[in-house]
Design a protein around this nucleic acid. Structure first.
Lengths: 241, 241
DNA sequence: ATGGCTATTATGTCTGCACATATTCCTCAG
DNA sequence: CTGAGGAATATGTGCAGACATAATAGCCAT
């Protein structure tokens, strides 16, 4: 695809910021002025066309490359991504925020709190070889009194301070984000039938399709926690493209 | 010429790029050297400490702000995000790519192709008031011969060229991404029980928990398509934090 | 006190320049 | 014809300086 020759070249151009340039480039891609897989003009050419410095164009193009719209290679130039592996950034709010954002009252009940050895599958997820005991916490989150999320969590007791926090008052998650350093984590979404326990807690029939969020987090040296959230039917995770 | 008073705080720093600075700042946050909600030093102070230009620090901090780790306000300074509304960026690949990436052979069968008026719910999603007929396409995607994804799609016929493409050869999605300009879209994930048709197509029991991806896309003026993907059990959408 | 003006300050953005680095392309020797 | 090697080129990154913008803090007059 031949890049369109620019109509308005010259120093007398409206002052364009990098955001305006990003928008204009995106427009040309979306309207197929620049087709998928096609090469777009060099930074220098665009800087000339838009009447700004190359660094400004660079800023705009880098953002678009980050979001997967463009593919850039030194010397090879910049081309429009041919096969759009769309990257969607979705926000994963804290449960309480999420419920309160809908104008409902958040509350939770600590259903269980036991120190015991987790199943092998959990230990494996946390990358632990030995069978060490961990704190098993089960919590039910409610929105306006209605069960919303069932939380099943294993927590490494070594991250707890000596007088352990009272998790029946402060939710485990909120204590963690406020108090424990983490380095990396991992999150996964899936759909699974409700277990007997989940069905009971969420007041749905066993086998009901539940949306599952599973998160694992580690500190630099040790695992911190594994948590599985079972969302009541109707839950949707949504974002714009 | 007198060397610049480069009295570095602490040990001498190697030449640091913006990525190194981002990493170091992130480390200080993760290890709680800088606590959640706390103010971090100004760009100028950091530039001095790291022995680089303010622009370099700015680049690093901006990235961290984009990813939700920092919150920045003019004059107020930069602070560590108190409540980590974690943003996860997940990649949404084309089905064929996803299957082939697992080393399996991708194939698909066009189950249905009819021009008719969609249900009101679909029209509403697409933002259409009048009851116009649209192309209804149902496709089953297979991985190595095993049903993987059931695709239920409504397509605005006005985006089709005169000799309509043969969707039994080229998958609708791939034709679309290669041929149709879009401006905005919307994607949502949920869990739902398999309908009779989905159960039949995916060879699972009715009511089985299925992971659902629902996407809507528009051009600047008109809706393009609404599509709902029902993934066979075991499907997981995963990403790092 | 209170309201409003101003000075201060941290970040946001841009410019113009420089050099680094990765690729491609072309030339030339074998 | 083929492969090695160097020139050309587009992007990646960095620096110093400048001005813009937003929000705070302090001051003054009422």
């Amino acid at each position: 695809m031949v890049p369109r020759p620019c109509v308005c070249v010259g120093p007398f151009k409206m002052k364009l910021g990098w955001e305006a340039i990003r928008a204009e480039v995106l427009r040309r891609i979306r309207t197929r002025i620049w087709a998928p897989g096609g090469l777009i003009p060099s930074e220098e050419a665009l800087a000339l066309e838009f009447g700004c410095a190359r660094a400004t164009v660079n800023r705009a193009l880098q953002e678009l490359a980050n979001s997967g719209v463009l593919e850039r290679k030194r010397k090879a130039g910049t081309r429009v991504a041919a096969l759009p592996v769309r990257k969607a950034t979705l926000e994963i709010p804290v449960i309480r925020q999420e419920i309160e954002a809908r104008g409902q009252a958040h509350s939770f009940r600590l259903l269980s709190r036991l120190l015991k050895v987790p199943p092998l599958a959990i230990l494996a997820r946390l990358g632990v070889q030995d069978t060490v005991a961990m704190l098993h916490l089960q919590t039910l989150h409610l929105a306006g009194g209605i069960p919303q999320v069932f939380e099943d969590r294993w927590l490494n007791p070594s991250v707890l301070p000596d007088p352990a926090p009272d998790f029946s008052i402060l939710s485990v998650n909120e204590w963690l984000v406020a108090s424990v350093a983490f380095s990396i984590g991992d999150i996964a979404f899936s759909a699974e039938p409700a277990s007997a326990q989940e069905a009971d807690a969420l007041a749905v029939g066993p086998g009901t399709a539940l949306f599952i969020t599973e998160r694992t987090t580690w500190a630099t040296d040790a695992p911190i926690t594994w948590v599985r959230l079972s969302h009541a039917p109707g839950y949707r995770l949504q974002t714009l493209l």
